[in-house]
Design a protein around this nucleic acid. Structure first.
Lengths: 157, 157
DNA sequence: CAGCATCCGTGCGGATACTG
DNA sequence: CAGTATCCGCACGGATGCTG
């Protein structure tokens, strides 16, 4: 936290220099667009909708487990530590419903079911890679930021 | 859902051709790495940790609202539709703690507080842009997939 | 093997009222 | 203006037991 005794107006000048423009400008435009679209009745934000769906605890982990090759139910279960069978079933269904994975039933005895990434699921992983790399790079930075924040908070009482 | 009456083994051949390799291969490697690291006691997955933090209902929206320029508390409130003051305060605190935004208090009467994106927050938006563009592109595809899935489910009973 | 059904605890986030 | 404090519903997800 930064405390200043200058007037609030001071900050306007600082910000007008547009830090390193293009990315912020693009997101600013996107957000303005988002604000307009959100006024339309019945409008569903694509980002919200899809991230609500794949942003749960297990979806991306399951998608990644299928990146190398298709796996059967029990193989996915072994691949993803600590997931319950209930959540595995549920998440696989949700991913299939969204078209991220396909489900192939083989009429063997006992039955075996194979799940594989679709083109859509593959394109999602592709689009996530930049973000995943960012989290790997930034995690130490965030951990330090948290420690500093918590320390200052304790000091303040 | 695809039903086959071939043997399960048939699929192994199909998959060995590695669809369009590099992205899947990279994620397969990343996932294998993730599996190994998850065995270490006390290990925290960076992606899980950071996405848990910024993957909530409001964080990314707030970050985007600050992309154009710093805003004061009430301005953020107006910019983000339907957020409660409670969640705004809470989310701003969380983002500040993680170092995504900085908080600047101006000693005016009544007090005014300004929030602005940090370099880290900016880099997050940057890394998210590919994913956001993907959601915009893919939303129609997913909606169609869902309709087909639900239709087949209804037909099956 | 690949699920489904049921019960249940926890935490996210909304609503409301109050303060320096 | 910029928060805090309290109450509370509800959905996410864990645990367990059962089936074709």
């Amino acid at each position: 936290m930064v405390v200043s005794h200058n007037e609030a107006e001071k900050s306007a000048e600082v910000t007008s220099k547009e830090p390193h423009g293009s990315v912020r400008a693009r997101f600013a435009a996107y957000f303005a667009d988002w604000q307009r679209r959100s006024l339309v009745e019945g409008w569903v934000c694509p980002t919200r909708d899809l991230l609500d769906s794949i942003g749960d605890t297990w979806s991306t982990l399951i998608l990644m487990s299928l990146a190398a090759k298709p796996l059967r139910f029990s193989a996915v279960w072994r691949a993803v530590p600590d997931i319950s069978k209930r959540m595995l079933t549920q998440t696989l269904r949700s991913l299939e419903r969204d078209g991220m994975i396909s489900r192939h039933v083989f009429a063997t005895k006992p039955p075996s079911v194979e799940y594989r990434l679709t083109e859509l699921g593959d394109s999602l992983l592709e689009s996530m890679s930049a973000l995943v790399e960012w989290t790997e790079r930034s995690h130490p930075v965030v951990l330090r930021a948290r420690m500093r924040f918590d320390a200052l908070e304790d000091a303040a009482g």
